[in-house]
Amino acid sequence: MEKRALLLTYGLIFFVMVSWGLNVVMLKLLVEAFPPQTMTAFRILTAGIVTILIVLFGSSFQSLSKREWRYTLLGMVFGVVLHHTFLAQGLTMIDASNAVLILALLPLTTALFAVFFLGEALTKWRLLGICFALIGVFFIQGGIGSFQMEKGEVYLFIAMIVQAISFIFIKKTTATLDSKQVTAMMLLFGSIGLLLVSLVVEPTGVGSMMGASPFIYIVFFFSAIVATAVGHFVFNAAIQKIGAGQTAIFNNFVPFFGLVFSAIFLKETIYLYQLVGFLFIVAGVLFGTGYAEKHWVRKVPIQGKSM
């Protein structure tokens, strides 16, 4: 890849990480302004419509086999309906700063599921990463290492875990199907599932979506179109161009920007134990996903051996 094209790819994926860190803060604002389940349904519906239009104008749809339909629907249930339901509900109960740190465990959790369900190796370095990540979790619970968790934290952990499960199904689907089409279908069909759930748990939710300030609607559309729709397309394109390993490492910027934006826009206090927890989680992700072992450990020359 040419240097200029590579720099452009890095710049775009970095912008996505900034928007995803900001998106957690935006969601915190949105769940306080609207009924969380109904807002989530319309936000994902908006993202789904945008992604479908992009796919339609960019390339033709491919017909799906029964296997592809099965994995796409499973990915939709876990990655869209369950993930966004628990994410929205959890954000009504805890600060955005804690939420982004919990969501930072996503790459590590995905790597662990890949070990159990996709047959990837679990090395000593990955085990070290798991230990680092667990230490980080104890810190973000208040700096005292307590196993007791608030309800909102439980919801965020569930949101993170079900999204990691969805990645396993997505990986199986995209082995034979274009990732952009999978993303668009999951968002559009998933929004229908979210809307059905919202009609049950929030019967008057649709009417409550009216009457907010113009600023809140700007936040809503920025979250839906830029962070969710465009962000996922850029992320998938980066995986295709520079590989999953290099792209995934950028995810470590998300909790950092989430902490910064929660302090700036929500006036949340960032504590030292949260920063320490963040560092442990980043170390856990680097080792637990196998990135450090692949790019650092195996490149260290062995003493006494000629190069």
Score class of each variant (00 low, 15 high):
V137I: 15
L122W: 10
M76T: 14
T174V: 14
F113I: 13
M149Q: 02
N236G: 09
F157M: 10
A224P: 04
S63L: 12
A114E: 14
F253M: 10
N98W: 04
L7M: 15
H295N: 00
V254H: 01
L194T: 06
F215W: 10
Q274W: 05
K151A: 13
F233L: 15
G79I: 12
I225A: 12
M149A: 02
A244W: 05
L156M: 02
Y271P: 08
T173H: 12
S60P: 12
E150N: 09
T176P: 07
V80M: 14
A88I: 11
T38D: 03
P203C: 08
F253Q: 00
A227V: 13
M160Y: 05
F215K: 11
S146F: 12
F34A: 05
A184E: 00
L127T: 13
Q37C: 08
R67P: 04
L187E: 02
K299N: 02
E202D: 07
Q148W: 12
L73V: 15
I52Q: 05
I135E: 07
L122Q: 12
L73E: 13
I242D: 02
A104I: 00
A248M: 06
F34K: 02
L74Y: 14
E153Y: 11
A104Q: 02
N236M: 04
S223P: 08
I54P: 09
V234Y: 03
V219G: 04
G145N: 11
A164Q: 03
V297R: 10
H232R: 09
L272F: 10
G48T: 09
L30A: 01
K172H: 10
V285I: 01
I242N: 02
G58N: 14
F147W: 13
A41P: 13
L127P: 11
K172F: 06
F265S: 01
K305R: 11
A121W: 11
L272N: 08
I94C: 00
V297K: 09
F139A: 05
D95T: 09
P214C: 03
F86G: 06
F34V: 03
T51I: 14
I281C: 02
L8G: 11
W69A: 09
Y155R: 01
G119K: 10
S65H: 04
Q181S: 03
A5D: 12
